[in-house]
Design a binder for these strands. Structure first.
Lengths: 98, 98
DNA sequence: GCCACTCTTTCCGACATGGAAAGCAACCGG
DNA sequence: CCGGTTGCTTTCCATGTCGGAAAGAGTGGC
């Protein structure tokens, strides 16, 4: 009976990445450190998740060796925004009744 | 620095369970078979997820050996609705900017 | 007694995840 | 030119979760 499949994108759905996407969706661009801080994960963990998002084409990593510091900024790509939006739409569909 | 922690409830957040909760939130009560069908999982998988939801106190399992058939109906408990609502609220907070 | 219908439980391998620690690259101070 | 620091990356490892298949258990039907 044609299950109403979730079509959840696992890359986006995992808690930490969902947070990251949400963060980026709200601000357009954020520094690595800020994300790490806000999401509350360790460097290594954030790095790994970002990498996954990057490989999925959802996040654009801006490595800027500006001034003296290395600043890595993160931003959602168009695909990333689309994926996140689609995900949110799915979630809303699921929560329709509320 | 007081990260805006997700407070995601893993029990509710896992895709299949999120679907189950969404389903139940919408209809109040649904039969095991209907849920299994709608979510698109096998008996065993649904059974396992339901058990987790049940143990978390989120779902009430109504085992009715009515008539000739065994009918197991599922429904969200108050805690379940609350948890689901909280979860949805979290998700919405995350998607604020959209 | 035997079968069918409905879940339930067990067994399994595959995969994702997080934390710690070592690695790297670039830069600053001495 | 060397050592230390910042900032991110990669590796290693232990743990947990997930889903599928198959066997099990309870109940009513033939």
């Amino acid at each position: 009976m044609t299950a109403v499949a979730p079509r959840f994108d696992p890359v986006v759905h995992a808690p930490p990445r969902l947070q990251i996407c949400g963060l980026l969706a709200a601000v357009d661009t954020m520094d690595f450190a800020a994300v790490r801080d806000t999401v509350g994960v360790s460097d290594s963990v954030l790095s790994k998740h970002v990498k996954q998002l990057e490989e999925a084409g959802y996040v654009k990593v801006g490595k800027a060796t500006i001034a003296s510091r290395q600043r890595t900024s993160l931003a959602l790509t168009k695909a990333g925004k689309a994926a996140f939006a689609a995900h949110v739409a799915e979630l809303r569909r699921i929560t329709e009744g509320l």
